Simulated assay, not measured.
Amino acid sequence: MSPEPDAGPPLRPSEQAGLRGPAEQWAFGAALARSMPRGGVVFLEGELGAGKTTLTQGLAAALGFTGRVTSPTYALMHVYPAPAGPVLHVDAYRVRDVAELYEMDLETLIGDSCLSVIEWGQALYEDYPEAPIYRLEHVDDDPGLRRVTRLR
């Protein structure tokens, strides 16, 4: 199931959807980008290979970025220049203390971005209480299917 373009946020809190394959994960990300306010933050959770980067690819493309979107696991952050404004992509999984991110000027980077995607950002949830949180999960009996749940 892919979200309809410009149909509002793809999922309300506590709702779930099934995404079959990368194309639907990408489309979900694009719909999410269109539903977010300029300067918004969105959090993504999910184990390795659940589709967080693929979803972010669709999100960045919807904002006009035409380059390659990759996981920021080792770099911690990527900034993708897009016509709509920079897209910030953060992976906080390896961060031991949230202060490390703030020392890297996270607040300014978020403030300067048209949209920020933060993976594994649980330590930042309280700092961005309006930001939606989406969890992506493998579905055990169907390797091509991912379940996405909006937690808030």
Score class of each variant (00 low, 15 high):
Asp105Lys: 12
Arg135Val: 02
Ala30Phe: 09
Ala7Glu: 02
Glu130Val: 02
Val41Ser: 05
Ala82Asp: 07
Tyr102Ser: 02
Thr73Met: 04
Ala27Ser: 13
Asp142Leu: 00
Asp142Trp: 00
Leu145Trp: 08
Gly67Glu: 14
Pro10Gly: 04
Ala61Gln: 13
Thr149Ile: 06
Gly144Ile: 00
Trp120Leu: 04
Pro37Lys: 07
Arg146Gly: 02
Pro86His: 12
Ser71Asp: 12
Glu126Ala: 15
Pro37Leu: 03
Arg135Gln: 14
Ala92Pro: 01
Glu126Val: 13
Val69Glu: 15
Glu24Ala: 13
Tyr102Arg: 12
Val139Phe: 00
Arg12Asp: 13
Thr70Asn: 13
His78Glu: 14
Tyr128Gln: 01
Phe43Pro: 01
Ser71Gln: 14
Val148His: 03
Asp105His: 12
Leu32Cys: 11
Phe28Thr: 10
Thr54Tyr: 03
Ala23Asn: 12
Gln25Phe: 00
Asp140Val: 05
Gly49Val: 05
Ala50Ser: 15
Lys52Gln: 09
Glu119Gln: 07
Ala131Gln: 08
Gly58Cys: 09
Leu115Phe: 07
Arg150Asn: 07
Ser35Trp: 06
Gly29Ala: 14
Ala33Trp: 06
Arg96Ser: 00
Glu47Leu: 11
Gly46Phe: 05
Leu55Asp: 05
Tyr74Asn: 02
Pro143Ala: 00
Leu124His: 12
Ala61Tyr: 11
Phe28Arg: 09
Arg135Phe: 01
Gly51Phe: 06
Glu103Leu: 06
Ser113Lys: 09
Arg68Gln: 15
Ala92Gly: 02
Met104Phe: 06
Ala123Gln: 11
Pro9Arg: 13
Leu55Phe: 04
Phe65Val: 06
Leu115Gln: 10
Ser116Ile: 10
Gly144Cys: 04
Leu115Asn: 10
Leu145Lys: 02
Gln25Gly: 10
Val79Ser: 15
Tyr80Lys: 07
Trp120Ser: 02
Leu44Met: 11
Phe43Cys: 03
Glu107Lys: 13
Leu76Phe: 09
Pro5Lys: 11
Ser113Asp: 08
Ala82Phe: 05
Glu107Gln: 13
Glu103Asn: 06
Val148Asn: 03
Glu137Arg: 13
Ala84Asp: 04
Asp105Val: 03
Ala84Cys: 03
Ala33Val: 06
